[in-house]
Amino acid sequence: MSVTIKDVAKKAGVAPSTVSRVISDSPRISEKTKRKVRKVMDELGYHLNYNGRVLVSQSTQTIGIVTKVSSDHFFENPFFSELLRGISDACHERDYSMYLTTGNTEEAIFQEVVKMVQGKRVDGVLVLYSREDDQVVPFLRESSFPFVVLGKPVDRPGETMYVDNDNVQASKEMTRYLIGLGHERIGYVGGNSQFEVARDRLEGYRAAMKDQGLPIDEKWLKNDPSDKQDPDQIVEQLLVLEKIPTALIFTDEYNALTVMRSLSRRGVSIPEQMSIAAFNNTVVSRLADPPLTTVDTQAIQLGHESASSLIDLLKRPDMVKKSMIIPTRIVERESSCRLERNTQKKA
């Protein structure tokens, strides 16, 4: 015989209506009561009838996750794995499921989002990027569908809930860190400039160099709009310059690792001849050879807070739209060193 709400209520010493409100995560019920009721539910083996719940509440208890254009890049990059871990943790805590887009083109992903919304497959959508000429966010706005963006929105940020780092400031701090180590010729390897995060980090780098009165050779800057950079080509272009950078900043640790391997194959010693620093600080940075100096963007927390914000919005549709900035910190490792130790001969 299956366990009912009345069975749970009786053992927990509360009314059946209280159990129902706990199941729907009502803010009217205290966290203490929620914990007590949920514990009884676990002990009795009470399981929700989700199909029936959807019919009654018109809620799927599912949020849609919209990735960047290439799902291949998404799953290869450990930053996104940690991001998903944070999202998954928040969904588990709030009894929500995830519905993940899997398209490999912008149009394919957009059509998946249309199906999510029009087919009522999800309650809200979490967009894991902020990009120019994007179809998804305008469609969600026009549909009056709940959504949260991971990253500062390209337009109407005051009307949009989002979670992000202060990428301009974080990039300034990393550039200043390398300048503090004595580096003046600092290169920057960025990403697709359609994405707000790539533009912000490049802006921070330029601002820090300008603040210190340091010139920037545009040949030190490598930004590939396709997000498919050839590390060997990057290294070849840098090593033939009259003035080779003594340090490089990468907007992504994954790309940093591929360029580090290419530098090593050409006999460039890291960090003695080339200091390397990057963003994100996942397991890739810790296991790199040498371990990588990074800006820790707190990927797990970014994911957790973005999912929590979306679920809060679903619970309280009239809440004031808010943004959240997750702090960053520099993690110093062996891929960077003071310029005095640099043995590079070419001036």
Rank of each mutant, 00 (worst) to 15 (best):
S193C: 06
V136Y: 02
V136I: 15
I186K: 04
P153N: 10
G64Q: 10
E142S: 13
I87W: 00
M161C: 11
P153V: 07
P146M: 06
F110M: 10
T101K: 05
Y129M: 10
F139L: 08
A90Y: 00
E112W: 14
G158C: 05
R156G: 12
I65L: 11
Q169I: 05
V136L: 05
N167E: 11
S81D: 02
I109K: 08
P153L: 08
G86R: 00
K172E: 14
E76V: 02
R121A: 11
S97L: 06
L126C: 13
A170N: 06
T60I: 08
L100Y: 03
L126Q: 14
S130C: 11
Q135I: 05
V189T: 11
V114E: 05
V56F: 12
S59V: 05
V137W: 03
P157F: 09
M174E: 04
Q58C: 09
Y177G: 03
V148R: 09
Q169Y: 11
F110K: 12
L128H: 09
V56R: 15
V117P: 01
D134V: 11
L100H: 03
M116S: 07
V189L: 14
E107P: 07
T101S: 15
L100K: 12
Q118Y: 03
T62I: 13
F80Y: 15
G124N: 06
R176P: 00
S193A: 14
Q118I: 02
S144A: 15
Y99M: 01
L83F: 01
E196I: 08
S143H: 05
V56S: 14
R156L: 14
T62G: 05
V125S: 11
L140W: 03
N165D: 01
E132Q: 15
H183M: 03
K152H: 13
V136F: 01
Q111Y: 09
D133R: 15
L128C: 15
R185Y: 02
Q118V: 01
F147M: 12
G180F: 04
E112S: 13
D133F: 13
T60H: 04
F74K: 01
G182W: 06
L178Q: 07
L100M: 14
Y188M: 14
D123W: 07
N77W: 07
V154E: 10
Y177P: 10
K115H: 12
Y188A: 06
G182T: 04
K172C: 08
V149M: 11
E106W: 03
T60Y: 03
V117H: 02
S88K: 01
